[in-house]
Amino acid sequence: MTQKDVANQCFIDRSYYTQIETGNRNPSRYVAINIAKVLNFDPSVFFTEELSSPFQLALQNVPIVIAHCDLELKYTWVFNPHDDFIDNDTIGKKDKDLANNEGIDKLTVLKQRVINSGISGQCIIRFPLSNGWTNYLVFASPLVDSLGHVTGVATSSINLSNLEPLGVNVKEQA
């Protein structure tokens, strides 16, 4: 699809689209949503810089992986992947493209069930990784558009393997 095709389908000027594509201009929310629909990706990609700074600061030391997948279970966004996958370009790939094991099979089943039912789910999944077997508590929720149609699945996966109680008592303040 050419820049002209995308611009025409989004009802914007081609030069404006070119500036968006090269990163010289940020689209409005409305334009971002239209471009995302035409190119079949999540419009939040346009605004991740604005949202990511406090998000990254809050989660920088938390053993959690957050991801979005489309209806075909291809990754459209990933935050904080395990070190085994940092060098892989996960965007546009399915889990089976990245690894093939029992944990991947269970993750795929969970994601597909959430997409098919439109209902969130969770389970503990054990993955064989370079640092040994690792247990993740995986939460999966449907991604929906403004009309309520499921467009994909979001997952939050917490690495349970290295979690230890701190032994700190926290008292509520009245």
Rank of each mutant, 00 (worst) to 15 (best):
C10V: 10
C123P: 14
I104F: 07
K37H: 12
T18W: 13
I33W: 06
L59T: 13
I124P: 08
F85T: 02
D13F: 10
V62D: 03
F127Y: 11
I104M: 01
A7G: 01
S146K: 07
I12C: 14
I125L: 12
Q122H: 06
I124C: 08
F79W: 11
I35F: 08
V6T: 09
K96A: 07
F11R: 11
R29N: 13
P142V: 03
I64A: 13
F85P: 00
Q19M: 13
E50F: 15
N61C: 10
Q122V: 00
G23Q: 09
D5S: 04
E49I: 14
F85Q: 04
N24C: 04
L137F: 05
G132P: 05
T90M: 11
N100A: 12
N135R: 07
Q19E: 07
G92S: 07
A58C: 05
I33S: 10
P63V: 01
T134R: 10
Y30G: 15
I64Q: 07
S53G: 05
F127D: 15
N88L: 05
L57D: 11
V45M: 14
A67H: 04
N24Y: 06
I20D: 11
D97G: 12
H68R: 15
L143Y: 09
N135M: 02
F127E: 12
V78N: 00
N8V: 12
I33K: 14
E102F: 03
F139A: 01
R126K: 13
E21K: 15
S15G: 02
D87I: 10
F47Q: 15
I86K: 03
F47Y: 14
E50M: 13
F46A: 14
G132I: 00
P63H: 02
Y17I: 05
K4F: 09
I66N: 15
D95I: 06
S141P: 13
Y136A: 08
N100R: 12
W133A: 15
Y75N: 12
V78S: 04
Y136I: 11
E72S: 09
Y75E: 04
G103P: 09
S53C: 09
A140C: 06
D89T: 11
F139T: 01
N40H: 12
I86H: 04
T48C: 14
D42M: 05
I12K: 00
P81M: 00
S53Y: 04
T76W: 00
D89F: 15
V114N: 03
A99V: 09
N24Q: 07
F46I: 13
I104V: 01
D97K: 08
R113S: 06
R14Q: 11
